[in-house]
Design a binder for these strands. Structure first.
Lengths: 176, 176
DNA sequence: TATTGTTATACTCTATAACTATA
DNA sequence: TATAGTTATAGAGTATAACAATA
């Protein structure tokens, strides 16, 4: 889990590579030694996780790049979206829903609170927990944030192909 | 990009949750307020990256757990597989192929070298680069490593469903 | 006792920059 | 000047543990 499956493919690099490599050897079994650019993938070819990781790395890089003007990262984005869709819920509920560690969520919420996009209020039912809300400023930001996220999604659809994008979303969203 | 899209779903948690939750409300529009366990996902529902990230986190957790007896992580695994399939290639070539940073690959290879699974030899053509090989010990380990990785892959197929696993692998492996 | 939120720590990964030695 | 490899650093993310307040 260090880099390979991690690093996956980089938007710029893979684009550049495709553009530069003028269809060299491509086919011909273990031609690795003959083609300095294309290595054999071996059994990685059979690992769904390998491809998922590569795609996920591309997605994060593009997302971060696309929302760089706002300085919002994927996890922060997902927390804002969940709070917007479920105002008043506790940190514990948000964390469970997004599979974010309590400790990590605490720090993440501090960041969003410092930017005055979310607020914690004492919960009525359980005085141990905090109810989470978007602030007025946070609500005002959401359209701009969502527009950029949609821009990223469009780029992703272009990257994988519209049909593949649709199929992947269908396969992944309707389970679990 | 911090936790949410990151954390995705956890093998143990999601399994436990599915087992524990006796089909509560499930349907009924924005039922968030009524069901303490199921929050609305909002526009995350439209983000392929959200689901890809969740699956990727599950994959890494299961992979790491499955290979814990060997103490091999995904990126290390992918490097071993690529070196085995392409013996004698340089760090630069391996790194480009797997999208691993030079600096990161250096440290990763040190770890594998310390375990005596790979060896660097001076390259013949270019004395700046190192040619990478599996050692005898490394070669002897590969069957055991691959068997565990295959075990992980089987668990992944079970997790997403055999049909979905096949479709995802087909969609993701034949592009880029 | 268990849960909620917080703080702290150690480790991994990521992204750079700087450096050397070769080309 | 560019490439191959190394070292170092700062910033995220992950996984724990420990703690206070509340249930």
């Amino acid at each position: 889990m260090q880099d390979d499956m991690q690093s996956g493919f980089n938007a710029r690099q893979s684009a550049a590579k495709r553009a530069n490599a003028p269809e060299r050897i491509r086919r011909g079994g273990p031609a690795a030694a003959k083609n300095p650019e294309r290595l054999e993938r071996g059994v990685l070819q059979n690992h769904l996780g390998y491809f998922v990781r590569r795609l996920q790395v591309w997605v994060f890089k593009d997302f971060i790049h696309t929302l760089a003007s706002i300085g919002l990262r994927p996890a922060q984005y997902s927390v804002l979206v969940i709070i917007e869709a479920n105002p008043g819920r506790s940190q514990a509920a948000i964390g469970r829903s997004l599979n974010i560690e309590r400790a990590r969520l605490t720090r993440l919420l501090h960041q969003l609170e410092r930017r005055n996009w979310i607020a914690r209020r004492p919960a009525t039912a359980n005085s141990r927990s905090h109810a989470l809300f978007l602030t007025g400023e946070g609500k005002k930001m959401m359209p701009r944030i969502k527009a950029l996220a949609a821009q990223h999604e469009a780029r992703l659809a272009e990257f994988v192909g519209a049909s593949r994008h649709r199929q992947l979303l269908g396969l992944l969203s309707n389970f679990g």
